[in-house]
Design a protein around this nucleic acid. Sequence first.
DNA 1: ACAAACATCTTGACAATCAAACAATATTTC
DNA 2: GAAATATTGTTTGATTGTCAAGATGTTTGT
Lengths: 144, 144
Amino acid sequence: MPALMTETAKLSQQLVELYEKLSSWEEDVVKNSGLSTAQMHTIEMVGHEEGSPLRMKELAKKMGVTTGTLTVMIDRLEQQGLLQRTPHHTDRRSYLIALTKKGQTLFVEHHQYHLRLTEEITATLSAEEQALFGAVLEKIISQM
Amino acid sequence: MPALMTETAKLSQQLVELYEKLSSWEEDVVKNSGLSTAQMHTIEMVGHEEGSPLRMKELAKKMGVTTGTLTVMIDRLEQQGLLQRTPHHTDRRSYLIALTKKGQTLFVEHHQYHLRLTEEITATLSAEEQALFGAVLEKIISQM
DNA sequence: ACAAACATCTTGACAATCAAACAATATTTC
DNA sequence: GAAATATTGTTTGATTGTCAAGATGTTTGT
């Protein structure tokens, strides 16, 4: 890191570094599951909606992709038995997307990885630091 | 957010949210430049090495892709006049990758976006919080 | 000089992505 | 209630990002 740097520049670079480390961590973890990161991301998004499954359109919006993209994505994950389309009760144009048992297992397992990483990360922080870090993240997130 | 949640689970989710917000922010910013995020990421990596340009192999390693991937990436950015290959002085197998003037301009401009975002983010934090946030990030990054 | 190691590029394959066109179903308007 | 309009999901065609494997030229060690 350059010797002369404003506080903002320093923080900006730290955010970039954190982002990159999280990226490559996720890639490593996902590779062992045989899925791509985009596929795992889809599993995470679907798994996060347990109880109120989303339609294609809603899921696509939430993920920031077009429905065309999502169609092929869901096709492949459905072929692998990780999730399934079930017809919408009142709107026959739509499907609701939900994880299968197999998909849920994968989702939970992956979630455990996240928790483990978070534990490792926070292990080096004091209780005070941890609390403040959480509070700061909360502020930042709600403001972005 | 679920009512009952361990501190770790909460923090884990916050990290995911931060990551996703940074992703979509970057996508929005990059879209206006006419490049893809992968291309902009390459510009950032190359731009970050001002003064000691890297070879294909080194850059590929740094970016976590194969040299084959990097070849086509650099081809396209070179076609757009954003960077260039220059022969390595002593090793005729290698090229050094560096930004052109046009590429540097783009790089600086993008960097400004990062700084502006960081400023926005930190604007809501007290000086104390800011300092502690930086210190915590430092710890986390060096430990990951 | 020769073989082994190395750096890059090329090729072939596939996944992810979008925009635009399309088919089926819903909704609105008259 | 029929016709026009809107919405939802899929398909198609194009581009990009990616890797693995192989080809080509270069360097290094013996």
